[in-house]
Write a protein that binds this DNA or RNA. Structure first.
Lengths: 203, 203
DNA sequence: ATACATTGTTGACAGTGGCTACTTAAGGGG
DNA sequence: CCCCTTAAGTAGCCACTGTCAACAATGTAT
């Protein structure tokens, strides 16, 4: 990392570097211990340098969590199929991308949902977080309009979808989706049940 | 707590007291910071006393997590309806009890699922944790036998059920089941979708 | 060129936490 | 009655963290 002995006194873009380093750390470690000092260490600066760019630890964490939502939304958007024949074909790639984001960035995902003093609520009502949720809502809306999804209050269906995917993601992060308990393809199976729960039986 | 100034030098039953105190702490605090010193403080003993009963912090945590599984299983067993007419009537009370356990013991629930160094896997393959899972499996087995549940690999259906309930529990603990996102009765709605996903459309 | 603002470094402080001696009290078996 | 094991208390080590203050280097506007 800091193999630049002739690095200038001023980093030049430390703010970004700190965020990037922090994201790296959250990508690698499952366990959710995060210290400003280690971020500084790995960024190759002194332990107090980050304070020139962030008032305190919480501020850095908040900013990183927001970036997490942005990236998650981008991931889901990228995974959205152009034209899907069945409801399952529409939902499955997105769900897979969601879970993959969680397992690829375990600590970041935890951070995004960490309820430190009920602060998570505010985070999740932020527009950048709501943008993620909107992807789910949009699918449901389109499905209802097309008749492939039951006509039910959409928030309730969103609760089911979000709950299931969030739960599967958490279980996956914690390594609990072992064949002994949930078989060999738990996400596929869970999606089948979800799709059938959402799907319109009339079709 | 330690309002016994004439308390004898030997506590008498410190082991149990430590566990009980720890469970109390995990019941109150959402945030998952757990220190042996505070347990000792609240138990009214010196900060080193617990070491006479537990080799280290991890041992205490492991034991507490196991007790958590026992209590969760007991909760679910107590909530199991005697005779349910519909699949939903059979599942809903148990699901509600599960979520309630999580929101009533937020930090304990987190502990039971905390993947410290992939240690969670071992915990969840322990018989006391599997006993909880068996309640879910039993429902599915009975439902399939009675024809009220689709004939599908049971592990996959278990994945869906577990994932959904775990997810809803986590979201509830983090206070994220706000009406703005998931409506006013998210658990009810999610259960509807789940039941319909599991249920046999032929009936 | 010089004064100022910015962005680093160094060092320290206060608090915390796990854990390990050593000491002291209590109880029980010989 | 004595001794030894057990279970508690006291003190402290060591590592670590967030944060702040003082200082140094660099860039920038006048």
């Amino acid at each position: 990392m800091q193999d630049a002995p002739n690095r200038p006194y001023h980093h030049g873009d430390l703010r970004r570097a700190v965020i990037e380093t922090a994201l790296d750390m959250l990508r690698e470690e499952k366990g959710w211990q995060f210290t400003l000092r280690e971020v500084a260490r790995r960024a190759g600066v002194s332990h107090a340098a980050p304070y020139k760019h962030f008032p305190d630890k919480a501020a850095l964490l908040a900013e990183i969590a927001m970036i997490g939502f942005d990236r998650l939304r981008a991931s889901l958007a990228a995974a959205t199929p152009k034209a899907a024949k069945t409801l399952r074909d529409e939902i499955a790639p997105i769900a897979r991308a969601y879970v993959a984001f969680g397992t690829d960035n375990p600590a970041l995902y935890r951070l995004m949902f960490s309820a430190d003093e009920g602060k998570a609520v505010g985070m999740h009502l932020n527009e950048r977080a709501l943008a993620v949720f909107d992807i789910l809502l949009e699918i449901l809306r389109r499905g209802q309009a097309a008749g492939s999804i039951r006509k039910r209050p959409i928030e309730g269906q969103a609760a089911a979808g979000w709950g299931l995917i969030h739960g599967m993601t958490m279980l996956a992060i914690d390594g609990l989706l072992v064949p002994e308990k949930v078989g060999s393809a738990p996400l596929d199976a869970a999606l089948s049940t979800l799709v059938e729960g959402l799907g319109n039986p009339a079709t």
